[in-house]
């Protein structure tokens, strides 16, 4: 159970706003780790910094024992981190299949067909809609497409940002089932969620983030029993 991702003391600014104040966390191979916290706490910013869209002024980010803090975003994907951003951000004007092809942009040619098959296996709905324009999919289907697209690059680590956002409860269950399945199939997962209850129920470990700082961490079970977490995030 080696460490896949180690984030050490990152500080990220949006202009004058100090968004992340010394965040450190780590993710081990095979785990589901979740990052919970209120709106604006810095969850998405953390993921954006890991995937290289934002830069930290301090500290380091190590992925599979090499530093990625200064690697450009488009190269980080090829190293094995796939990021499903908040709001899904699928390519609305492209077809389902073209979206998946974009997900395989850095994938070796001989792996693409295999990965496509795997994605269609996980998300049979997408297979029925290969040539449909992605912008016309329902919210749940768009989330599946965003996840499928991320899986096309065979990631070692899959980062999911609010996969349950805007989905009906039944779809949320479905998406979380898929997350657990992907994890069982060997993908390490870093999950950002506002739906803390759902997230803690599937997570091996969890971090609570408040105004740019990690305030609590522990196993999913520990945190779901913690009074502080209950009060702040679980509505009790």
């Amino acid at each position: 159970m080696g460490s896949v991702l180690t984030v050490k003391n990152i500080n990220v600014y949006y202009g004058a706003i100090h968004a992340l104040k010394g965040i450190s966390l780590d993710v081990n191979r095979g785990e589901i780790v979740t990052l919970i916290g209120a709106n604006g706490a810095g969850k998405s910013t953390t993921l954006h910094t890991i995937s290289g869209l934002l830069r930290s002024k301090t500290g380091d980010i190590e992925f599979l024992e090499s530093s990625i803090a200064h690697v450009p975003a488009h190269k980080i994907v090829a190293m094995g981190i796939s990021h499903v951003p908040e709001g899904r951000r699928i390519f609305q004007g492209l077809t389902v299949e073209e979206n998946l092809q974009m997900g395989a942009f850095v994938t070796k040619k001989d792996r693409i067909a295999h990965n496509l098959e795997y994605v269609y296996e996980q998300f049979p709905r997408l297979k029925e809609r290969t040539s449909q324009i992605a912008g016309t999919l329902s919210g749940g289907e768009q989330q599946m497409l965003a996840m499928g697209r991320a899986l096309m690059s065979d990631p070692e680590l899959l980062m999911l940002d609010e996969p349950s956002m805007g989905l009906a409860p039944i779809l949320v269950d479905q998406i979380f089932d898929i997350i657990v399945n992907l994890n069982k199939a060997g993908t390490t997962i870093l999950l950002v969620e506002q739906n803390a209850q759902m997230a803690l129920s599937v997570a091996d470990r969890a971090y609570v983030i408040e105004t740019g700082r990690i305030t609590l961490s522990g196993t999913g079970e520990e945190l779901s029993k913690s009074e502080e977490v209950k009060k702040a995030y679980l509505g009790g």
Partner: peptide, 8 residues
């Protein structure tokens, strides 16, 4: 941004 996340 999403394109960069695809490795483009």
């Amino acid at each position: 941004g999403a394109a960069q996340l695809m490795g483009i």
